[in-house]
Amino acid sequence: METLEQIKGRITAIIPGARVDLIPNECPSNQPSLLIDQEHGVRIAEFLRDDPQLRLDYLSNVTGVDWPDTIVKEKVKVMKLVEGVETEVHGVVERKKQGYLEVVYHIYSIAHKHGPVIVRLRTNDRNVAVHLPSLTPIWRSAEFQEREIYDLYGVIFDGHPDLRRILMWDGFEGHPMRKDYVEPDDYEYEPTPHDEVLERARSHQARNAVL
């Protein structure tokens, strides 16, 4: 199979305006991936499926990942006037890094028996701009998996034929697989509480004692 750099080069040559970034992966598994942009997502997917050299006809796995907002501390060198002389001072700048939701597609080829090519799509933020193009029209195996990501992460897939909750009931609020989801407080009674569960049971008892 071609390397991801070659695939990236061919995508940008064939689809004008497509932005593709290579995401390295330095752990022993060595599975780097391609980050593709939202506007050309469906076009790129179509190319991956139909290109005679790649023939990535089998979408194996679709995963949602939640990356919450983080505060990154960066060390910067600032020129400051110290006692009348301009000197270099080490300062720390706190920068808020916008969180996003990510969907990862693992695609293989049954025709050529190679793979995986890993493709990622990212939303702009976690609350409002959570729209991504659905790849279900290209590979039907994404149908239930994208529905699951919609249910558990809240990514809205434009172009999905049947986007409803799949695992939780209709009328459920929130997206439980997000990192900041607060679970319902039903720790009335714990037979053998310890560690985290003991803390939760205690907080439940304390709250009910106030009420």
Partner: peptide, 23 residues
């Protein structure tokens, strides 16, 4: 019934009462 996050009510008090946690 299904509530927004949990079942409503969370338990049937006529069948089950949370025992007091004595620790």
């Amino acid at each position: 019934k299904f509530g927004p996050h949990d079942l409503v009510p969370p338990y049937n008090p006529e069948v089950w009462q949370p025992p007091k946690m004595v620790r």
